[in-house]
Design a protein around this nucleic acid. Structure first.
Length: 951
DNA sequence: CTAGCCTTGACG
DNA sequence: CGTCAAGGCTAG
């Protein structure tokens, strides 16, 4: 890893951040290298336990010790693992994200407990203790994940908890917050300071990002006053609380940040998407259900009828499943889904192998390795040739940052019509393009944005949106969002000059075609354009940079951001105003705006070659507004038609460039996708959950009544993840026996020895399961599926879902997988722990996500697609499931086409990653089973953490 | 990190 | 040689 050590890259491309997608060489290389190297390592199941064991035992550098070190109970959570920063190989600091144990931990735990006790209904302390004991006990343990709930109460947890949690979910904001505050956000984007190499290597740079941010957010240097500076990450800005909370103990080494604190939004590649609204989730702990857990009670967000039906169905389904399947998971899932209650003996789900799962796994296993992923990220961007369409339209590409708020915006109904596909037209331009075809600039007035000629809203339909300030100052070129308008396009050549009229002014031809309000063609001169305000910040335009006319500062900012692969996260969830005065405050939003306004990543030269003409292809597709496939309304289409792009062969395409965020979103994001996104917050795992989970687990286990009790069959997803792996594989695969046997083994082995471990498992499993089920039940497409099938689907996909979530979250930290809050693991560390196979695949998968610049919308859509995989023979209504999946696929396709016209193959590429995910999952499960067998607690815990959901 | 200014180099 | 966009340098 050359310069960038894997970890170090941290700042790197976050999922959200653009940089992530950036073709960046180094990062990729490093990662690639790593992966490749690793690849050599046996992917197969057998992980060398020995290694791990030793390593684990030794806290060695990597120390991932978890629980033990910390409080046992709490273990998982915060405390655990901290690995001091370790400088990685390369000289650079790599930051491995180390996790420090927060001093607070104890607090947390205690707190958690307290909450738990107090908060929860009936749960008594005694219970807790019991459960704890239980966990500790060999018996209970294994199951823990699942078991967690097991106690009589346990059930409650599972289902009850969920139910209880239900919508309402009792959140304790406060608690949460408090907890959150304690959390270490180091990871969050702090940009490591980087020194700049004289040479200006990018490599080194990554490191550099951050310091400023430090906690406060270095990003905005200046701003501090106005706002405390916040660390940025693509994910979003941290809330104030978070900010305050962040205590970062950084280790010197780490400069990078992990995004942990940020909730997630996981990464989205695009800055836009990145900003996922951060919601803290309700703590289910607080929910009575949890403690007590009668699953009966809990109500997921469902109507009563639904609930009733579900319950009925569930029971039936569950029973069926039980009969048919023997995996633990199903039961648990079933319970969760349906509230099915079974009091079965508790076994640890985790331990139990699930056969069913295997089936898929097998299939999946066959899937080609992700290795390909390694290839370059470059490919996409770097070579123009590859993507003819490469150019990102400002409009389209620009993903307008979608502020969290945006979610609330009214949605358009989008037509799913595929027609949209056709919309994207692209040219590929060569760097030297002579062809510079026409570009359309809307000249209109030089006047300030408000005055922009374009003012007419281009989109009649645009809903009222509240725009966020972000609106540009509206240079004629770039219409203010509010004004929505047309923009100029250039067609092909990146070289502005080409576009210019003889005068040297950009040709406005298109405008007319496009009906842009802007001034008549020819009227404005380039100079005029230059005189207009920078569409990003409103400053004076200095020229045509990276695809748009912008000021020198934004040009430089964009360059630095891309070259250095910065991952900025808006702590506020996006939507920060970007003006001359505020542009320094939130680089995340500024970068988003750069993209939104049309700056092209492709314009940044990987090789940093100076001079000459740009080779990047400028492809302009029809304006999304008009044509966006996804959501366009007919009207819009019509409009588009007017603007009709140049004839297919023609080189010139004109499109409206500017889209307000709002309109953008509406146009590009299919309703279904938006609906899916709206429930995404249910997925995220937050600290509170964790903590609470811990408590719960402990409490519940011992008794375990039933809940989870699965006849040993069920495993919580988490567990299953672990175990499941084995199961699916068949590695372990014992069906029936497994659960018991496993449990036994566990109990005997490590589990007994590591109460913490067990409790952790319980916590994780419970929480994740809870979250996942809750999420599933809220999914638009999932609700209509019968309970039986819901259970089946969840059983078959939970592992993929968890891993996907983890990998997506890790997009911003090349070379490392973000395990949990602040914690991350590098391949090297994984090797020491004997987890190389799994981590390697995860890194590879993550690299692919980064390369593809998977954004939040794509991520959520893919999760649904994965969830709705109907390739199982166990489905009762496969057609229905298939139909649902098809809808999700359609929505994703529409979105990718509309949002990333320059990446026409993105949809297909995204789907091609699913097999990799499945393989990765298989590897993870195998590892888990192996670890479990060997009893390596720490490694096992680590895996659990890996599988854990987002925070 | 920011942003203004400088250098580079393909084109015309 | 001028233009112009991309990268580099560096004071702040």
């Amino acid at each position: 890893m050359s310069e960038q050590n894997g970890p170090s890259e941290g700042p790197g491309p976050g999922p959200g951040s653009d940089s992530s997608w950036w073709p960046s060489t180094q990062t990729w290389k490093s990662s690639a290298a790593a992966s490749s190297s690793t690849s050599s390592t046996p992917t197969s199941t057998s992980v060398s336990v020995s290694c791990s064991a030793s390593s684990s035992s030794t806290s060695s550098s990597t120390s991932i010790n978890s629980s033990t070190t910390c409080c046992p109970s709490s273990c998982i959570g915060v405390s655990c693992t901290m690995s001091p920063s370790r400088s990685t190989e390369t000289g650079k600091n790599v930051s491995v994200t180390t996790i420090n144990v927060p001093p607070n931990q104890e607090m947390h735990d205690a707190k958690g407990v307290c909450k738990y006790l107090g908060g929860q209904n009936g749960v008594t302390v005694s219970v807790v203790s019991t459960s704890v004991l239980g966990c500790g006990n060999a018996n209970a343990v294994p199951t823990s994940g699942i078991c967690t709930n097991t106690g009589p109460h346990s059930i409650g947890i599972g289902i009850g908890g969920i139910l209880a949690a239900n919508a309402a979910d009792i959140d304790d904001p406060e608690d949460s917050d408090g907890e959150i505050s304690k959390i270490d956000f180091r990871g969050v984007n702090l940009r490591s300071k980087k020194k700049r190499d004289v040479s200006g290597n990018q490599n080194g740079e990554k490191i550099g990002d951050g310091e400023a941010n430090g906690d406060g957010g270095g990003c905005c240097d200046d701003n501090s006053q106005q706002q405390p500076e916040r660390p940025m990450s693509w994910e979003g800005e941290l809330s104030d609380q978070e900010m305050s909370s962040n205590t970062i103990t950084n280790q010197d080494h780490n400069e990078e940040t992990s995004m942990e604190g940020v909730q997630v939004c996981s990464t989205s590649p695009g800055p836009m998407e990145q900003k996922f609204p951060i919601k803290s989730e309700p703590d289910f702990r607080s929910s009575p259900g949890f403690s007590i857990g009668s699953f009966h009670d809990g109500g997921l967000p469902m109507t009563h009828n639904q609930q009733l039906q579900q319950q009925q169905q569930q029971q039936r389904g569950i029973e069926n499943l039980e009969q048919t399947q023997q995996s633990d998971l199903p039961l648990l899932v079933g319970k969760l889904l349906g509230g099915y209650n079974n009091s079965t003996p508790n076994h640890s789900p985790v331990l139990n192998p699930r056969h069913h799962l295997t089936k898929h796994s097998h299939t999946r296993s066959q899937v080609p390795s992700p290795d390909s992923a390694i290839h370059s990220a470059y490919s996409v961007f770097s070579s123009p040739t590859q993507s003819p369409h490469a150019a990102r339209h400002s409009a389209l590409g620009a993903g307008s940052p979608i502020p969290s708020s945006s979610l609330s915006l009214s949605r358009h109904s989008f037509n799913n019509s595929t027609s949209s596909l056709s919309l994207s037209l692209s040219h590929s331009l060569s760097r030297n393009n002579s062809d510079a075809s026409s570009s359309c600039y809307s000249y209109g007035s030089l006047s300030p944005p408000t005055h922009s000629p374009v003012q007419q809203p281009r989109h009649p339909h645009s809903h009222s949106q509240h725009h966020q300030h972000q609106v540009p100052q509206g240079s004629p070129l770039h219409l203010p969002a509010s004004s929505a308008v047309a923009a100029h396009h250039y067609s092909s050549s990146s070289v502005p000059g080409s576009e210019l009229s003889s005068d040297g002014h950009p040709v406005a031809e298109d405008q007319e075609d496009c009906r842009l309000p802007s001034a008549p063609s020819g009227i404005s001169t380039r100079q005029q354009l230059i005189n207009s305000p920078c569409p990003i910040c409103g400053d004076k335009i200095s020229g045509f940079h990276y695809g748009i006319f912008s000021c020198e500062s934004c040009k430089g900012f964009f360059k630095r951001t891309v070259q250095n692969r910065k991952n900025y996260v808006c702590l506020r969830g996006a939507g920060c105003p970007v003006t001359v005065a505020t542009r320094k405050k939130c680089p995340a939003c500024r970068f988003d705006k750069c993209l939104n306004m049309g700056m092209k990543l492709e314009a940044i030269r990987e090789d940093r070659t100076r001079g000459g003409r740009s080779t990047y292809q400028c492809t302009y597709t029809l304006p999304n507004l008009v044509g966006s496939p996804a959501g366009m309304t007919s009207e819009k289409l019509t409009t588009a038609g007017n603007c009709s792009p140049a004839p297919a062969g023609s080189e010139h395409h004109y499109s409206v460039r500017y889209h307000s965020n709002h309109s953008y979103k509406m146009q590009v994001v299919p309703q279904l996708l938006q609906d899916i996104m709206d429930v995404e917050h249910l997925w995220h795992y937050n600290d509170n959950d964790r903590i609470s989970g811990t408590v719960e687990c402990s409490s519940n286990d011992s008794n375990n009544v039933d809940t989870n009790s699965r006849r040993g069959e069920t495993a919580s997803p988490t567990d299953s993840t672990l175990t499941g792996a084995s199961d699916q594989h068949s590695t372990n695969g014992n069906t029936t026996n497994n659960s018991n046997s496993q449990i036994a083994s566990n109990s005997n082995g490590n589990s007994a020895q590591h109460p913490d471990f067990l409790s952790n498992l319980c916590n994780i499993a419970d929480h994740r399961l809870y979250k996942i089920v809750k999420w599933c039940k809220s999914l638009p497409l999932f609700k209509n599926i019968s309970i039986d099938d819901q259970i089946c689907l969840l059983i078959n996909s939970w592992c993929e879902l968890l891993l996907f979530s983890c990998c997506f979250r890790s997009m911003s930290t090349p070379g490392e997988i973000r395990v949990s809050l602040g914690k991350s693991i590098t391949l090297e560390q994984a090797r020491q722990l004997g987890l190389a196979t799994c981590i390697e695949r995860m890194l590879t998968f993550t690299n692919n996500l980064r390369r593809l610049r998977v954004d939040q919308y794509e991520y959520v859509a893919m999760k649904v697609i994965v969830l709705l995989t109907s390739d199982t023979s166990e489905l009762k209504e496969p057609e229905k499931v298939r139909a649902s999946q098809e809808k999700a696929l359609q929505a994703l396709q529409q979105y990718t086409i509309a949002r990333y016209p320059e990446m026409p193959a993105k949809f297909g590429e995204l789907l091609l990653r699913i097999p990799d995910l499945q393989r990765t999952c298989q590897a993870g499960k195998e590892l888990l089973s192996a670890k479990r067998a060997e009893g390596e607690g720490s490694s096992f815990n680590l895996l659990m953490e890996l599988l854990r959901g987002d925070h």
